[in-house]
Computed example of a mutant assay.
Amino acid sequence: MATQSIVVYCASSVGVNPIYNEVAAELGQKMAARNIRLIYGGGGFGLMGNVADAVLQNGGEVTGVIPNFLADLEVAHSTLTEIHFVETMHERKYRMVQLAKGVITLPGGYGTFDELFEILAWRQLKLYDGPVVIINTSGFYDLVLQQLDRMVADGFLKAANRDLLLVAESVDEALTMVANYWASAV
């Protein structure tokens, strides 16, 4: 049984660069190897499906949280360890972070950015206490990071709150950041 859980935010599509899928699979493999349960949106496609498949194929545990309307569209992953059905997207996001003590974000679109920025706002407001890490695969988040720095420079974001977002260049670095946060919180 997994001792810790991490929420992974990422795309329900695969993107055009194969490196994104490779990193998603590596994250899933290494989470399973470290006995970390995956908590995610419950979908069976794209990067999110690839992370879940890799965890499961390597003997790990996966909990999905999916709104009924998405499950009804047949996008729910069919072989998870556990799945929670909820009514709304907001309830989904809330339930996912209730189940985990950390967040790792891979590339994605509007949904991924919505989840990432909401959890950062919750961290800023002290509504969530866990590390929030992005894996900046192939510089995917470079422009976002520049925008955050601009927000600090222009006085719209405190530097301490900017530092709530941890940036990793690899899966190993991201998992180490999470482990270090957990160790310091004891």
Rank of each mutant, 00 (worst) to 15 (best):
L70K: 11
H90N: 14
D114C: 03
I119N: 04
F140K: 07
G102K: 15
Q29I: 09
P131A: 15
A32S: 12
D149Y: 07
E173H: 12
Y94T: 13
G111Q: 08
E115C: 05
R37T: 02
T79Y: 05
M1Y: 04
F156L: 14
A160G: 04
D172I: 00
V62T: 11
H77E: 05
D154A: 05
I134A: 01
H90A: 13
P18T: 05
V16A: 12
G139R: 09
Y20D: 02
P67L: 07
A153K: 13
A159E: 14
E118D: 06
G102W: 13
L157N: 07
T3K: 13
P131Y: 04
R162K: 13
Y9D: 08
L148V: 12
D72S: 13
T3M: 09
L56V: 13
V8D: 02
L120F: 03
E82K: 11
V75L: 14
G102Y: 14
S5H: 14
R162H: 11
D53E: 15
V103E: 09
E74W: 03
A185P: 02
G109L: 06
D149H: 08
A54E: 06
V167H: 01
E61M: 11
L125A: 04
V7C: 15
L80F: 02
T79E: 13
M151S: 13
D72W: 04
G60E: 00
W122S: 05
R34V: 00
N50G: 06
G46I: 01
K30V: 01
I36N: 00
K126H: 10
R34D: 00
L148Y: 04
A185T: 14
N136G: 09
E61A: 11
V51F: 00
T63M: 05
A160L: 08
V167Q: 01
A100Y: 03
G130A: 10
D154V: 06
E173F: 06
A100C: 08
Q29D: 07
V23S: 01
V152Y: 10
E87T: 14
R162C: 03
F140D: 06
G108E: 04
G64V: 09
D142T: 11
T63R: 02
R162L: 03
D163M: 09
N21G: 15
C10V: 07
L125E: 06
G28R: 12
